[in-house]
Amino acid sequence: MKKALDAICVKGLPKRDIKNANRVNLLTLLWVITLMISTYLAGEGMLTSPIALTIAIVIHVIVGIAMLLSYKHFLTQLDEMERKVQLGALALAVGVAIISFSSYSILEEATTLPPLNTAYLIALMALSYIVGIFKGRLAYR
């Protein structure tokens, strides 16, 4: 149990890595918030103006780019072991997304399922990534 808690709480990582991870987490949260707000406003018909739509998209893209650059910086600063954990988690998330999306597409074409809601795919990737991080930290710590 202690090993699992240490994996969740990133115990053993240098302060620099924790600071970088917190920056990535904050920017990811901001990106998700911009996605939620923009999606809500679009669904309520509040982004019908080209200017309002452009502003929403630009803010979302800028926060997304900042998140990606922060994650890249985070990865370059990590030690080899934690980088391996991150790579494994990314591979799991991408693999799960590709397999799930392609399988769902087949079922959708067969008219078994309704069209895919992309929010579910993003959530599935995020959850797969979290599982990969947890699994990797348990294996290497």
Rank of each mutant, 00 (worst) to 15 (best):
L27R: 08
I37V: 13
A66S: 10
F134R: 00
I133W: 05
L138I: 08
V10M: 14
L87K: 13
V58H: 07
S128D: 00
V131G: 04
M36N: 15
L47C: 04
L27C: 04
M36E: 14
V32T: 11
L116G: 03
V58G: 00
A110D: 05
T54D: 11
T118M: 15
A93L: 00
V94M: 06
H73W: 02
A119I: 08
L78C: 01
Q77W: 00
R141V: 06
K72I: 14
L116T: 07
S100E: 08
G45R: 03
C9R: 15
A52P: 02
L116P: 06
A7S: 01
P50E: 05
S38Q: 12
V58Q: 10
L121V: 08
E108F: 11
W31K: 12
V24Q: 04
A139E: 07
G136Y: 02
G95I: 06
G45I: 03
E82S: 01
M67V: 12
A7H: 01
L5N: 03
V131S: 07
I130W: 09
R23Y: 10
L29E: 08
A89W: 01
M125Y: 01
Y140D: 10
A139K: 09
K11G: 11
I133T: 07
R137Q: 03
C9M: 15
D17A: 13
G88Q: 08
T34M: 08
A139N: 07
L35D: 11
S38Y: 07
L5S: 02
F134P: 02
I55F: 00
L53P: 00
M36C: 15
K135W: 13
M36A: 15
Y120C: 09
D79Y: 01
S103K: 10
S49L: 06
A56K: 04
I99S: 07
I133P: 00
A139H: 05
F101M: 14
I59S: 06
S70M: 06
C9A: 15
L30E: 06
F134K: 04
S103A: 13
L138F: 01
V131T: 09
L30F: 09
L127C: 10
M46C: 14
L127A: 10
T48Q: 15
V32F: 12
I59R: 07
S49N: 04
Y71H: 13
S128F: 03
I18P: 03
K11A: 12
G132T: 05
V85P: 03
K3D: 13
L75E: 09
G64D: 05
R141C: 09
F134A: 06
M1E: 13
I130R: 08
S103L: 11
G12V: 00
V58M: 10
A93K: 06
I51H: 08
S103N: 11
T118Q: 14
L78N: 02
G12Q: 09
Y71T: 09
V58S: 13
I99W: 00
M1R: 13
N117L: 07
L26P: 02
D6Q: 12
P14S: 14
G136D: 07
Y129W: 05
H73P: 01
E108R: 12
G43M: 01
I33E: 03
Q86V: 06
E80M: 00
Y140I: 11
I130S: 09
A56C: 08
I37C: 10
G12L: 02
F74D: 05
Y140H: 12
M67I: 11
L35Q: 14
F101Y: 14
V10E: 14
G43L: 08
R16C: 04
V96D: 02
A89E: 06
